[in-house]
């Protein structure tokens, strides 16, 4: 137990170091982009968060599938925490993207496929969180939200396809030729990505711990009620 605790302390230190390194590289260590100047530095946190969102929702869908196949409370707790932190990061992606768009495109919002899909994603998973908060029985809540997490996740590719068919202007960062940016920026992007993933893991762990305590309290309360009636 003590060894594991030490491991997590090390992990936290690494994550903090990654954030500092990422911020240093983003603001001091990389050259300005030619056409847009320093505003492209938004990209580091934007991409890091966006990729982590993809991980978060995929993880939630996988855990939900596992829950439907073999119902175990811990799958549900991890899926829920993953969606919750993923949704916070989606908010960050939308806000940072919007601010960049205001500078680069002159508008906070355009109906570009990736923007629109991200917004739909955000609604779908806010729905997940609302669904959870309106069911009281833990096993029922777990099953219904697992169904929804799976349904929402499978809907996303079709949404993207439909909106792309509709229109497109988002800048392509990853093309078939590789990365469309200087090497030092690529390193910074990945350092930031690692930093955000680290934060994600830490926050999810925190929420899972909390959910465990919560269900522990519920069980104890039920026992107490049983003893006194």
């Amino acid at each position: 137990m003590a060894e594991r605790h030490g491991l997590w302390t090390t992990f936290r230190a690494v994550v903090a170091a990654l954030w500092l390194a990422g911020l240093y590289m983003a603001f001091i260590g990389t050259p300005d982009e030619r056409t847009l100047g320093p505003s492209d530095r938004i990209l580091f946190i934007h991409l890091g968060a966006a990729w982590t969102v993809a991980i978060a929702y995929s993880l939630a869908a996988l855990l939900s599938l596992l829950y439907l196949l073999r119902p175990q409370p811990r799958y549900d707790r991890w899926a829920a925490a993953s969606v919750e932190v993923g949704t916070v990061l989606t908010t960050a992606v939308l806000v940072s993207g919007s601010i960049w768009a205001k500078f680069a495109w002159g508008t906070y919002w355009t109906w570009d496929p990736r923007l629109t899909t991200t917004a739909v994603l955000w609604f779908l998973y806010l729905g997940y969180l609302m669904m959870r908060s309106s069911i009281d029985r833990p096993d029922q809540r777990a099953k219904v939200s697992a169904i929804w997490a799976l349904v929402a996740f499978l809907d996303v590719p079709i949404v993207f396809e439909a909106v792309t068919w509709w229109r497109s202007i988002h800048p392509e960062v990853i093309t078939t030729q590789g990365f469309a940016m200087p090497g030092s920026m690529v390193v910074a992007v990945f350092v930031f990505f690692a930093a955000v993933v680290g934060l994600f893991i830490e926050l999810v762990r925190l929420r899972v711990r909390q959910a465990e305590i919560e269900s522990g309290i519920a069980v104890r309360k039920a026992q107490w009620m049983g003893q006194h009636t």
Binding site: P38, V88, A92, V95, S96, I99, F103
Partner: peptide, 18 residues
């Protein structure tokens, strides 16, 4: 450059606030 940097700081600040 100056305006671009303002936007950049605004974006990072917003993310940190969230």
């Amino acid at each position: 450059e100056r305006v671009a940097l303002d936007y950049t700081f605004a974006a990072y600040a917003a993310v940190f606030v969230i």
